[in-house]
Amino acid sequence: MNKTRLGRYALLAVGLVFVATEPVLAQSVNADLIYELNAKLLYVAIPITLLVQVILVYTVWRFRNNDDPQPTRENRRLEITWTLATAIILLFVGIASYTVLGNPAIALTPDAGPSAEPQAQQGIQPAVTHPNRSGATAPETQKAIQIEIDAYQWGWEFIYPKAGVNSSSELVIPANKPVYLHITSRDVIHAVHVPTLGLKQDAIPGQYNTIKTNATKPGSYQLYCAEFCGSGHSKMLANMTVMPQGEYQSWLDEQKSGGSNSSASGSANSSAIAPVAANPA
């Protein structure tokens, strides 16, 4: 009877653990890939952890009164079994991780170097403001949205070159559409991080790093710098807003109608950071 109850409690505990580790609903393809990988690894790690804990507790209880412990005997079958099991688990972890890390939404390969194809160069040049900097990745489709993120101490400039729009406080992208974010820095190393959408990439002076994403749920998400960059690091905050396509186009049109203000704001930002760049804190 006690064993039956113990088994029920164990099954209940396992069920609660699996429910607690169920991944949350992802808001982008990037987050979906990361959550799915985490779930796969947890589904492998949790049974192993529980098995080890059960064996440990059983051993402590079973031999608690043994005052004359004897060395364990060699058991080749057991050794071969756990060696093969470990190899299979590591192989599964390696394949699952490689599948995610090799996905373009997680790791995008730069193609804007000297050896890049002319078509790739032409696809990038209209979407960046520093054509001499390498590292940007051209989109696979002309329907993709390209946005430049220019980081500086201690703020952001979000540039839509094709639309002629600049923003310093809000990064707006359309939902359910491929978006390429070309990230660079004016002074020191920064890092763009939007945890909820699974986005993180360094902003390095003199080069571009590109993130590919596709946000699936409209909303406002926190964007901040994840690389310590000086005394104003904690102030590098912005909103990343995902809008339906119609609202996104309306936002662009609204920004264009106030284009003179956007340009003035961009100029003000540039002039404001000039002394900082010359003498970084």
Rank of each mutant, 00 (worst) to 15 (best):
M236P: 07
I211C: 12
T216E: 02
E227V: 12
M240Y: 03
N239E: 03
G206L: 04
N214D: 09
K235R: 14
Y221S: 01
Q207E: 14
M240W: 01
G232K: 08
N239F: 01
S231K: 11
S234N: 15
G232Q: 10
A226F: 14
I211A: 12
G206P: 11
H233G: 10
G230Q: 09
Q207P: 13
F228R: 05
S220H: 00
N209Y: 01
A238I: 01
K235E: 06
N214S: 06
S220V: 01
M240N: 02
Y208L: 10
F228I: 09
P218L: 13
L223Y: 04
K217M: 03
Y224A: 08
N209C: 04
G232M: 09
A238W: 01
S234A: 12
A215H: 02
K212M: 15
S231Q: 12
M236Y: 07
A215R: 02
S220T: 07
N214L: 10
S220C: 00
S220I: 02
C229S: 13
N214T: 06
N209W: 00
K212H: 13
Y224I: 04
Y224H: 09
C229I: 11
N209M: 05
P205C: 13
G230A: 14
N239A: 03
E227K: 15
A226T: 15
Y221E: 00
Y208D: 12
A215T: 01
E227Q: 11
K235I: 02
K235Y: 01
K217C: 03
Y208P: 15
L237P: 02
N239L: 04
Y208Q: 11
Q222C: 03
Y221G: 01
M240A: 03
A215F: 04
N239D: 05
A215V: 03
T210A: 10
S220N: 06
S234W: 02
S220W: 02
G206C: 08
T210Y: 11
L237Y: 14
T213P: 04
Y221R: 00
M240V: 02
E227P: 14
L223W: 05
S231R: 12
C225Q: 08
G232E: 11
Y224G: 10
G219P: 02
G206I: 05
K235F: 01
T210W: 07
A215Y: 00
K217Q: 04
T216Q: 06
G230L: 10
K217F: 00
C229M: 11
G232N: 07
T210S: 10
K217I: 00
G206D: 09
M236H: 12
Y221W: 03
M236Q: 13
G206W: 05
K212T: 14
G206K: 04
K235H: 05
N239V: 03
N209I: 05
N209L: 07
N214M: 08
P218Y: 08
N239W: 02
C225N: 15
K217N: 04
E227Y: 12
I211N: 15
L223D: 04
Y221H: 05
Y208H: 12
P205I: 14
T210G: 11
Y208S: 08
I211H: 13
L237W: 11
